[in-house]
Computed example of a mutant assay.
Amino acid sequence: MRLKIDRNLCGTTGQCVLIAPMLFRRGSDGIAVVVQPVPPEDEMENAEEAILGCPVQAVADEDG
């Protein structure tokens, strides 16, 4: 898995940051930023939840 954010889709809701704060943070413009593109094993569930929890589908797995 390799996480990415589509900056054009990000609605700045911050759901990914709330779900997986070890993987995402808010940028100075409010748009989410991936902190760890390749999640460690203990964060995989949070990564998947962040992908599913994004209301505008801006969070995705580059690998699939």
Rank of each mutant, 00 (worst) to 15 (best):
1 M>E: 08
1 M>F: 11
1 M>R: 07
2 R>M: 10
2 R>Y: 09
3 L>F: 02
3 L>P: 04
3 L>E: 00
3 L>S: 02
3 L>Q: 01
3 L>C: 02
3 L>R: 01
4 K>V: 04
4 K>H: 08
4 K>C: 05
4 K>M: 06
5 I>W: 00
6 D>R: 00
6 D>E: 04
6 D>P: 01
7 R>I: 00
7 R>H: 11
7 R>S: 14
7 R>A: 12
7 R>K: 15
8 N>E: 14
8 N>Q: 12
8 N>W: 04
8 N>V: 05
9 L>D: 06
9 L>G: 05
9 L>P: 10
9 L>S: 08
9 L>F: 03
10 C>R: 00
10 C>G: 01
10 C>I: 02
11 G>E: 14
11 G>L: 05
12 T>E: 15
13 T>R: 13
14 G>T: 00
14 G>I: 02
14 G>L: 04
15 Q>F: 06
16 C>Y: 02
16 C>Q: 06
16 C>R: 05
17 V>W: 09
17 V>M: 11
17 V>K: 10
18 L>I: 09
20 A>N: 12
20 A>K: 13
21 P>I: 00
21 P>C: 08
22 M>P: 07
22 M>G: 15
23 L>G: 05
23 L>H: 10
23 L>A: 08
23 L>Q: 11
24 F>M: 03
24 F>C: 05
25 R>L: 06
25 R>V: 04
26 R>V: 09
27 G>Y: 05
27 G>W: 05
27 G>I: 02
27 G>H: 04
27 G>F: 08
28 S>K: 12
28 S>W: 09
28 S>C: 08
29 D>A: 13
29 D>T: 07
29 D>M: 06
29 D>E: 10
30 G>N: 04
30 G>R: 02
32 A>F: 04
32 A>R: 00
33 V>L: 09
33 V>Q: 03
34 V>A: 01
34 V>K: 02
35 V>D: 11
35 V>Y: 08
35 V>N: 06
37 P>Q: 05
39 P>W: 09
40 P>W: 06
40 P>M: 09
40 P>S: 06
41 E>K: 15
41 E>Y: 11
41 E>W: 15
41 E>H: 14
42 D>E: 14
42 D>T: 10
43 E>C: 08
43 E>M: 08
43 E>G: 03
43 E>K: 12
44 M>R: 15
44 M>A: 11
44 M>S: 12
45 E>D: 14
46 N>I: 00
46 N>M: 03
47 A>S: 10
48 E>M: 14
49 E>N: 13
49 E>Q: 15
49 E>D: 14
50 A>H: 09
50 A>L: 03
50 A>S: 11
50 A>E: 08
51 I>E: 00
51 I>P: 13
51 I>W: 02
51 I>S: 03
51 I>A: 01
52 L>F: 13
52 L>W: 12
53 G>C: 04
53 G>K: 07
54 C>E: 04
54 C>N: 05
55 P>D: 08
55 P>F: 04
57 Q>K: 13
57 Q>D: 11
58 A>Y: 02
58 A>N: 04
58 A>W: 03
59 V>Y: 03
59 V>Q: 02
59 V>I: 15
59 V>D: 05
60 A>E: 11
60 A>S: 15
60 A>W: 06
61 D>S: 06
62 E>G: 09
62 E>M: 10
62 E>C: 11
62 E>S: 10
62 E>A: 11
63 D>R: 12
63 D>A: 13
63 D>N: 15
